Simulated assay, not measured.
Amino acid sequence: MYNSRKKPAEEVPYADTAIWSCTNDGCNGWMRDEYSFDEVPTCSQCQSPMERSMKSLPVLADTGFGYKKMTKPAPKAKE
């Protein structure tokens, strides 16, 4: 039997997130701070400097691949 009832869509949670946005007025490039590879990145679209700001974005699932998290030294194993 076919069930045609649609389940209500879950609301996507949003949070204020630190981002880097392009300083060039003609460019709308931006990236999440946690995925930037440089301390002060340059825009990948127009090579202009970027400035830090905040933006309300959907919360991403933590996959453990964020660059900022990789910079922490790994704990030493006890012998």
Rank of each mutant, 00 (worst) to 15 (best):
D62S: 13
T63V: 12
L60R: 12
A61K: 00
V59A: 01
N24E: 02
W20L: 06
T42W: 11
C22P: 03
N28C: 11
G29T: 09
Q47H: 14
E34Y: 09
C27H: 02
T42H: 13
E11N: 10
Q45C: 09
N24K: 04
S44M: 14
V12A: 05
A9V: 12
S21N: 09
E34F: 09
D62V: 14
V12L: 02
E11D: 13
E39K: 07
S53R: 14
A15M: 15
F37M: 13
E10Q: 11
A61N: 09
C27S: 04
S44K: 15
T63P: 07
C46M: 00
R52G: 00
N24Q: 00
C46F: 03
T17I: 03
L60Y: 08
I19R: 04
S48H: 11
P13Y: 08
N24F: 00
A15G: 09
M54K: 08
W30M: 06
T42L: 15
V59Y: 02
E39D: 15
P49K: 12
I19Y: 06
A15K: 14
P49A: 11
T17K: 01
P49N: 09
S56N: 12
C27A: 02
D16H: 08
D16C: 10
S44I: 13
I19D: 11
C27I: 04
P49C: 06
D25G: 04
V12I: 10
F37Q: 15
P41Q: 04
S56C: 14
V40M: 12
Y14M: 08
S48E: 13
E39C: 08
C46N: 05
W20T: 03
P58H: 05
M50I: 01
C46L: 01
C43E: 06
T17W: 02
E34P: 00
D16E: 15
G26L: 14
D62N: 14
S56V: 12
D33R: 05
Q47K: 15
M54Y: 03
S21T: 12
S53H: 07
A15T: 12
S36R: 11
K55T: 03
G29W: 13
S21L: 09
K55D: 06
G29N: 10
